[in-house]
Amino acid sequence: MIESFWSKFFRFYVPLIIFVIFLLFPFYWMFNTSLKPMKELYNLKLNPFYVHQPTLENMKTLLFDTIFLRWMYNTFFVAILSTAISLGASLLAAYAIQRLKFKTSGPTGLAIFFGYLIPPTILFIPLATIIFDLRLWDSLWSLVLTYPTFLIPFCTWLLMGYFKSIPKEMEECAMIDGASRLRVFWRIVIPLCLPGIFSAGIFAFTLSWNEFLYALAFISTTESKTVPIGLVTELVRGDVYHWGPLMTGALLASVPVALVYSFFVEHYVAGLTGALKE
């Protein structure tokens, strides 16, 4: 189908640009703020969209006066481990519920899903008692183990959707050929679901990357903090916000991850379409 330039212009470029501006504006604002010296920030006479005296002072504060890189490492550590645990557990559970259709699979699926409805605001106090009894207080492992509580229900449901969308025939053929269920699961189901696993993984990773309340509640020492907690608790001092370093930190914490994601997203969309065409 050949589209005229103007049709493409109005139906594609214009809306796309509007969306991109809307979604990017706050990031531009972060970037802009991260380069501004404090004095310029509070000067109402200047054009706020433009940095008149750019400074790297904020970057310096962030990297040398706080242990930002350590926080980044902590966040990655927690996010990767809790995502891996959740993906593993969810993959098994989703397969069992969706494909094996065992006796109580319906209620089990519902029960897992309802787990998602419980708001963390009310869970974190009783949870604190448990974390304490398990001697996980102030340890990153407390987060690695509690994040799956909101990741597993989510991943399980996402993966169940994927299982639904994949034709059963291939599995059945393999089973007729004499392969055991577990073998079929490992050799056929998992490769087929790779795109689904990727997308569940991406979302799980993001959810743990962003988590705030549990990290605030269970982690105490500066060295064990995650990025959002570290930035907010150490760069907000009373009624003084250290806008520059805060914004620099927000940027540094999100842009690299977004770039990694863009790679994964490409991969997973390609995988998805490829797998289904065969």
Binding site: L23, W209, F212, P228, A250, A253, A258, L259, Y261, S262
Partner: peptide, 20 residues
């Protein structure tokens, strides 16, 4: 690139985008 840009709001910790 556009897809990566679109993901940005979702990736950034809410605690920080809220401050912006």
């Amino acid at each position: 690139l556009v897809r990566a840009i679109i993901l940005l709001p979702w990736i950034i910790p809410t605690a920080l985008s809220a401050i912006v």
